[in-house]
Write a protein that binds this DNA or RNA. Structure first.
Lengths: 166, 166
DNA sequence: CGGCAACTGAGACTCAGTCTCAACCGCAAA
DNA sequence: TTTGCGGTTGAGACTGAGTCTCAGTTGCCG
């Protein structure tokens, strides 16, 4: 998995540059993150580490996630749930999310026309954008075929594996 | 304030239709919400009620907000912060938000081209949308003129009057 | 009157996330 | 080798938004 190692190196560089140390805990976390998960939350990550027989405390997970966000390797996103999720910043292109409220699937997309139009709107309103965040909630193709209905749109609760694990 | 009373009536109708009761607490809350606030969070509302010398418990505030959302008079939104905000559903047209990360101002906009393009994307991905959510974070005109810089985009914390009040 | 269903406030609880603190771990200067 | 020092860690206390429970209240209807 050269991909993963490239990320490990990048993160180490970032740490050293900040006068911080590439500890075994940090490396284990970033390896886990970049080898499997694409979208995940802190708890999922914590659980995975436990499965891997690597003892890492909650505090360290959160601290490392903060560093990863600062380093630009990971992004913190809202995905329609009431807590944060994280995702890889793979290439560099910003993307948005379709979130299936039945099965929890997350489909990414990037659309230049959408981006352009947003820039236009900001210009018109004299607003200087730094960041944006678009989620479209709904039902994915697979779930629609199965005839699944979404939860009421006012209060979306996705199926959440984390909860079940506890 | 005929506007407010129209909303009170609408909510009462909704309640009766559901076999629920338009109590004094519920009416007081909806009156407060529709007479001043446009965007607010549960805590702000609770505080306002205390100021008005109306004793209403936190549980009731949350319960009423849930009912208001169900009735369609109020919408629950993410505004870049780590807890929910609520807003009036005035006309019916969906709108999105520009959120100034310096002063906390919220600017609404509706853009049909943006909506249309989103529908196109969903079609292409065979996704059935029920709802969407777009926030553009950045700096508003007034703050930009004052030369204010935004917080780091990775971790936006808006100025939050609620906290200061406590 | 009695019963019943909706309603309320107080406070316990949950859960994600943060913070504190003592212990630890190199490493480098003395 | 010892000492000191900054960064690091885990355990667990803490916070704050939001939810839930429960006992007591209200108002309606037979």
């Amino acid at each position: 998995m050269p991909q993963v190692e490239r990320h490990v190196t990048k993160f180490n560089d970032f740490l050293l540059q900040q006068g911080l140390k590439p500890t075994s805990e940090r490396t284990a976390l970033i390896r886990e993150i970049f080898s499997t998960h694409y979208h995940f939350d802190a708890d999922e990550l914590l659980f995975k580490m436990k499965q891997n027989e690597v003892k890492i405390s909650r505090a360290t997970v959160y601290r490392t996630l903060e560093l990863l966000v600062k380093s630009g390797l990971v992004r913190r996103v809202h995905l329609g749930e009431d807590h944060y999720h994280y995702e890889h910043v793979s290439g560099d292109s910003h993307h948005d999310h379709l979130v299936c409220t039945v099965c929890g699937a997350v489909i990414e997309f990037h659309d230049e026309e959408l981006e352009r139009r947003q820039r236009e709107i900001c210009e018109k309103k004299k607003f200087t954008p730094t960041f944006h965040n678009l989620q479209i909630l709904g039902v994915c193709d697979a779930c629609r075929r199965k005839g699944q209905l979404p939860d009421a749109p006012d209060r979306v609760r996705m199926i959440h594996a984390t909860k079940l694990r506890r």
